[in-house]
């Protein structure tokens, strides 16, 4: 059974169907199955390492005066659901769709 560690996935390059760079993996989204285990739901992909590392987008809100700055830093953030992952390579993760088809919000994912 192949295994991979989360830390090796974080920061891995993501490209879309045409090979264009989408960003790097900022986080891995998992969801609970009915049997209690967690399965992969998708990747949060972004370009600003700063905003990505701190984990904005979950329960963490940016401080009042920095909303604009953080929103700007996160403007390239996209959610790549597992269904749209074509291949997980050693160096890059390839998506099966075009980057324009990816939505920014990881929570808007239909589940």
């Amino acid at each position: 059974m192949p295994t991979v560690t989360a830390s090796s996935l974080l920061g891995r390059e993501v490209v879309d169907r045409s090979g264009e760079r989408v960003g790097a993996v900022h986080d891995i989204v998992v969801r609970r199955r009915d049997d209690g285990g967690y399965e992969m739901a998708g990747f949060v992909v972004g370009r600003s390492a700063l905003a990505g590392r701190f984990g904005y987008g979950a329960t963490l809100a940016p401080p009042t005066p920095l909303h604009g700055l953080l929103a700007w830093l996160r403007r390239h953030e996209r959610y790549l659901p597992w269904e749209d992952v074509a291949d997980i390579g050693e160096e890059v993760i390839r998506a099966s769709v075009a980057s324009a088809d990816l939505t920014p919000a990881w929570r808007a994912e239909p589940r």
């Binding site: 701190f54 979950a58 329960t59 963490l60 809100a61 940016p62 401080p63």
Partner: peptide
């Protein structure tokens, strides 16, 4: 500290 002080999860 400043970042986490804005985390509703905490």
């Amino acid at each position: 500290i400043f970042i986490v002080a804005n985390d509703r999860g905490y």
